[in-house]
């Protein structure tokens, strides 16, 4: 197992190299430049030129890449990921400060997803073609199809505007942020702020997971070993819960690893809508202002979650399926 993980990690290195090249080139090829926001009458062209030289943007792109990538890998140094063009803070420090908020959001959304989607998907499969199944499938399809920015705005509008209106201001969810002023560190307050963004993020995930769980369970229910379990005289609960579910969960485990990057991507949109101070909203801001060091750092992180999400899925496969050995 350790050897397998080691081998996969080594194999990931060229992937990271490829990601870094593509990401670096794409962001530099994109129109606009970090100094654009200074192109106002108060700033002289000479000052802008000085900024360009300061950021090293006048150098050949290959040289820029090499100097970026060689410092980027030295993660033990606080300045390794460079300084934000926006506020001059070390990027690594900014990422570390903001990461807990995003991890909290993603973690909660993932937990809610797993806890709801698996039973819902199983229920739909067991009661295939019933009204329960039709309702679940319809909601899952709608939830899957609706764009996340639209869903987020609806949820924000309903939870933060409509609900307080209906209840005469007594009940409603916060419109933005991750904590109330003066209540920093209050767990309940943090959770209260999480409700709407988590709902928004989880609905899409649940839709995908529930559909997947349903089809996986349906496939298993037609397997011969389920018939064997019934023929043994096992009660329905044991047949479904022990013999069918355990097998149906095997492919779902892959989804666990693969959904992490998806959650991160979803977080970018959700955090922006809910003005939630995490990595996602930071990413959207940095792209908007062409804050190259931040964009590069977060995109590399995104690539990292994809590669290691895959590895995690493969490792979990070996854990849950006795037929797979590494």
């Amino acid at each position: 197992m350790a050897r397998y993980v080691f081998r996969r990690t080594i194999q990931a290195l060229p992937i990271f190299f490829g990601i870094s090249v593509i990401v670096f080139m794409v962001i530099h090829l994109a129109p606009g430049s970090p100094v654009d926001r200074f192109r106002v009458p108060r700033v002289s062209p000479a000052q802008i030129q000085r900024l360009i030289e300061l950021y090293g943007l006048d150098k050949p792109i290959l040289q820029q890449y090499v100097s970026w990538v060689t410092t980027f890998v030295q993660v033990w140094r606080p300045e390794a990921w460079g300084y934000s063009f926006l506020d001059g803070q070390p990027v690594l420090e900014k990422v570390v400060t903001r990461a807990p908020a995003t991890l909290r959001l993603m973690g909660t959304a993932l937990a809610v997803t797993v806890l709801l989607a698996i039973p819902v998907g199983v229920l739909a499969a067991v009661k295939q073609y019933s009204w329960t199944d039709k309702i679940i499938t319809t909601f899952a399809t709608v939830g899957y199809a609706i764009p996340s920015f639209l869903l987020g705005i609806y949820i924000l509008f309903f939870g933060g505007v409509v609900l307080p209106q209906w209840t005469g201001g007594r009940f409603g969810f916060p419109l933005f942020g991750m904590e109330s002023f003066g209540k920093q560190g209050d767990v309940l307050d943090l959770a209260w702020h999480l409700v709407l963004p988590v709902t928004s993020l989880a609905i899409q995930q649940i839709s995908g997971w529930a559909r997947f769980m349903r089809s996986s369970m349906l496939e298993v229910l037609h397997q011969d070993y389920v018939r064997t379990a019934k023929a043994k005289g096992l009660p329905r609960g044991r047949v479904l819960g022990k013999h069918a579910l355990r097998n149906a969960l095997i492919p779902v485990v892959t989804l666990l690893g693969l959904s992490i990057p998806g959650l991160l991507g979803g977080a970018a949109i959700t955090e922006t809508i809910f003005s939630y101070p995490g990595l996602g909203s930071m990413f959207v801001e940095s792209v908007g202002s062409r804050d190259y060091p931040v964009v590069l750092a977060l995109t590399m992180l995104g690539g990292f979650t994809v590669v290691f999400g895959n590895l995690l899925a493969d490792i979990l496969y070996g854990v849950v399926d006795p037929r797979i050995k590494y």
Partner: peptide, 21 residues
């Protein structure tokens, strides 16, 4: 009665046993 008074074996031994137990 199932599996106790009447037991059954099937045609496909390859798929009739649960792979994860």
């Amino acid at each position: 009665v199932r599996g106790n008074q009447i037991s059954m074996i099937f045609q496909e031994p390859m798929t009739s046993l649960n792979p994860v137990y």
